[in-house]
Amino acid sequence: MNIDEGLSRRRFLRYAMVSGVAVPVYASTVIGNDAQASIQLPADPDNLTDLEKLHIPKVTIPPVVEDGSQAPIVVEMDHPMDDDHYIKSIQILNFDDPIVIKGKFYFTPVNGEVYVGTQIRLDGGEGKVWVIAECNQHGRWAASRSVKVAAGGC
């Protein structure tokens, strides 16, 4: 499984080590596809399976951001928020920025729906914002959006 073709293995591992995702990703690439230990990406983004539709986060971010100090982002999911099956957390990252981890939002079933909106800082130029959602039963799932930032905000 290849996380991002534009990101070198060495660079990804360096940043992933900081964000605490290195071990699960390494496990998925080297050992296999254990749902609890790996970050899962859709096999075919145009034809998502039912499980993928439920677990891949929907990320809304403008493709072009004028002011990188105030980039709006909304993450939502159709996943149920039952006591025994819910999304535990959503993490927002950008490996191209000097500040890689933007934040991590922890949910409980009392949230009812997975929805979080905020504004993040992005460095100038082209980059990719990653969102990792963690389900209590089906592990971690990732989605990304490419973004161009006119004036960097870091």
Binding site: S69, A71, I99, K102, K104, T108, I120, C154
Partner: peptide
């Protein structure tokens, strides 16, 4: 019921 842990990567 919820917690958001942030870095300086969040906007003003």
């Amino acid at each position: 019921v919820s917690r958001f842990r942030m870095s300086s990567g969040i906007a003003d």
